[in-house]
Amino acid sequence: MTTWRRHLYHLLLWLIALVFFAPVAWIILSSFKTANQILAVPPVWIFRPTLANYVRVLSDPGMVHSFINSIVLSVTSVLIAVAVAFLAAFSFSRFKPPGTNFLMFLLLSIRMLPGSAAILPVYLMYVGFGWKDSYWALILFYAMFSIPFSVWILKGFIDGVSPRFDETGRVNGASWLSIIAKLIFPQVLPGVIAALIFNFIFVWNEFLFDYIIGGPHTTNVPTALSTGLYSGGGVDWTFVSCVTTLYILPPIVIVYVFQRYLLVGMTFGTVRGEV
């Protein structure tokens, strides 16, 4: 390839990336505008950026509460899920207890169900037991929902570690727990990271479950966004764009920092490789 052709090729690739990012860029740009500028016809491209929206969002106790909820719900549930999934994946991978394939199948089918169908029975159960709007009930449900993909990802990684490590450990008198913690865990750390970040993004973005089985105490940001939109007639676009910008930053940073785990995460470990 001649130099200018290569430049043209690279320019084209960047243009494609920018086209996909353009709507996001528009959201971010809007968060620095005043209400009139956001709704201006024709759209305003050059303006003096204002931080007033951010001040307003960060001083809104309801919104700050929702942000804290989002963080608490996603971090706690994902940590629980990956810990539980790790033990199960180790068992499935090493001992292959009877019913392994069936259980792996059932686990996966939980995640293949449309959200409204998945939440309906849990909703009935939570109403029956009076578990609605409780942190633990929501965290444990999110954890349950994060377990399937975590088990799939981690089993794939543990399968890749030779059982000879375990045998060596056993011969030298190590207990199973120390084998798991000291021999296996360090080697499958990439899988653990993939499971953590992928499920974090899922819970972070989740709206329906929080809306249905949560309540005023456990409202996360997506629920707050979708239910609080129509207060006072119209949509408060400056507020929405600002909340959205703050909220989508963590996933974007994760895609940048953990780019090589993205493939494993999005395919729950069934496809691996460098992209």
């Binding site: 494609i16 990336a17 920018l18 996909f20 990012f21 709507p23 996001v24 959201i27 993004i201 972070w204 973005n205 709206f207 940001v221 997506p222 629920t223 966004l225 979708s226 959205t244 909220y247 989508i248 996933p251 974007i252 994760i254 895609v255 940048y256 780019q259 993205l262 999005m266 992209v275």
Partner: peptide, 14 residues
């Protein structure tokens, strides 16, 4: 690639 892959990790509600 981050810019390109961003749409799929965004909050659908947002």
């Amino acid at each position: 690639l981050t810019l390109l892959f961003t749409p799929m990790v965004l909050t659908p509600v947002a």
